[in-house]
């Protein structure tokens, strides 16, 4: 993964050690040969309804049956009542864009996407959702404009997620 790893391999051939010179400071760096790739595996059995919803084109939130508080991201347990007595409710897609940003410098695992817009919308039920805003030109958007929450396929992976759009999805 390291950009200096290739140099380290050359250096082993030449001098027998994975020590390379750092470009700017010219100081010696020992490049570890032991990569530690991390791909986490998250338990989502309590959120199954949410993921089933995505397959049906719906985005679900939860509501506590005791205090009536609504949650998105959905929670299977109410943090106020500490009860698991919650109800799953599909979100009304209409909302208002509160804020947004255009990500230019991306994490390495997002390097294969074009610059993307991340926004936060306030939906009718008082729930807020953070997602990509699907727009060809970020100049077209500003805070407080109307947006819609919809499920969408994320390409090139092709998995189902949700996003905000400027046009009603139906």
């Amino acid at each position: 993964m390291s950009d200096l790893f290739d140099k380290a391999k050359e250096s082993i051939k030449k001098d027998g050690l994975p020590i390379v010179e750092e470009e700017r400071s010219r100081l010696p760096l020992y490049i570890s040969l032991r990569e530690f790739p991390l791909r986490y595996q998250l338990g989502v059995s309590k959120l199954q309804k949410f993921f089933e919803g995505l397959k049906e084109g719906k985005v679900y939130a939860t509501q506590c049956n005791v205090c009536r508080n609504k949650f998105f991201p959905p929670r299977a347990d109410c943090p106020k009542c500490l009860t698991s007595n919650v109800n799953w409710m599909p979100l009304d897609p209409e909302g208002q864009l509160l804020t947004y940003t255009v990500i230019r410098v991306k994490p390495s695992s997002f390097a294969h996407y074009k610059d993307y817009v991340v926004g936060i919308a306030q939906l009718k039920e008082g729930i807020r959702v953070l997602a990509w805003v699907s727009v060809d030109d970020p100049e077209k958007i500003k805070p407080n404009m109307k947006v819609y929450l919809t499920t969408a396929r994320r390409e090139p992976e092709g998995y189902i997620t949700y996003e905000l759009t400027l046009k009603a999805p139906f």
């Binding site: 804020t99 947004y100 940003t101 990500i103 410098v105 991306k106 994490p107 695992s109 997002f110 996407y113 993307y116 991340v118 936060i120 953070l130 997602a131 990509w132 805070p143 994320r154 997620t161």
Partner: peptide, 15 residues
């Protein structure tokens, strides 16, 4: 899913 970066989080406040 949304690849937020640290400047991204604060940019949402800034906007």
């Amino acid at each position: 899913n949304f690849g937020l970066t640290f400047p991204g989080y604060y940019a949402l406040y800034a906007t």
